[in-house]
């Protein structure tokens, strides 16, 4: 019964446009989006290179990326914390407990997902596509761009999956963001804090938002997969 009342209160809080609540949601979305923008270009290019070219160290890189996929977010957070703390090599940049630190952390988290999914998209791409581009006289650059365009729906699906991973993680955001109200407090760190204080209304409201985001992400993925299968 209490859960039902709390949920009602949470929905009311969301609908009332509570400034603190929507501020937290905005920080989450903004940090995740910028992290993806930072990670996507190098990750997609690396996935493409790993899928399309044979070079020394390729297999090692693939194993490393797959290992990073399984790395707990809190470990990435710990490593970044040590790098960014005052005694660390990048301490002078004063990035610890800022949104920039969260963006870097989440970019590191998104990188292996984007690279691994782009790699599998390129490996699964129709071999005839690259051959057709070549026989029609495409140079290496146009060939690369053409291949990326041919797998664009899979790459977009990778971006959506990456967004799903970073918006729902807490370990890295907590460690390098520090959960500062109005600055680095995002959906997941706020839920943890509110729950620890025994206040569930805001936590449940933010949980509802996370579930809605997950739902939107999965609809997006289904749409991308549908597009990709049309050929």
């Amino acid at each position: 019964m209490e859960l039902l009342q709390t949920t009602h209160a949470a929905i009311a809080l969301l609908l009332a446009g509570d400034e603190a609540l929507w501020g937290i949601i905005w920080i989450s979305v903004k940090v995740c989006f910028l992290a993806l923008m930072l990670a996507a270009p190098p990750a997609v290019l690396m996935g493409f290179a790993l899928g399309n070219y044979k070079f020394p160290g390729r297999r090692v890189l693939i194993v490393l990326i797959q290992t990073l996929l399984a790395l707990p977010t809190v470990v990435i957070g710990l490593l970044l914390y040590m790098l960014l703390s005052r005694q660390g090599p990048f301490g002078g940049m004063h990035l610890l407990f800022t949104q920039e630190a969260m963006i870097v952390g989440q970019a590191v988290l998104a990188f292996p997902i984007l690279a691994a999914l782009t790699l599998s998209a390129v490996q699964g791409a129709d071999r005839r596509a690259v051959e057709t581009a070549r026989t029609l006289g495409a140079g290496r650059l146009r060939e690369t761009v053409t291949m990326l365009l041919e797998v664009r729906f899979a790459v977009m699906a990778a971006m959506i999956s990456g967004f799903g991973r970073v918006i729902s993680e807490i370990g890295c955001a907590m460690m390098v963001g520090g959960n500062i109200a109005g600055v680095t407090r995002n959906i997941t760190t706020a839920i943890a804090l509110e729950t620890s204080k025994g206040e569930f209304v805001q936590g449940i409201a933010l949980g509802i938002v996370l579930v809605l985001i997950a739902l939107a992400i999965n609809f997006g993925l289904a749409l991308m997969q549908g597009r990709g299968e049309q050929r």
């Binding site: 005839r128 051959e131 057709t132 026989t135």
Partner: peptide, 15 residues
Amino acid sequence: APRVIYLHQQPYLFN
């Protein structure tokens, strides 16, 4: 290429 062009049995058309 493209003085010599090959067409697959089932040609690939870009999406």
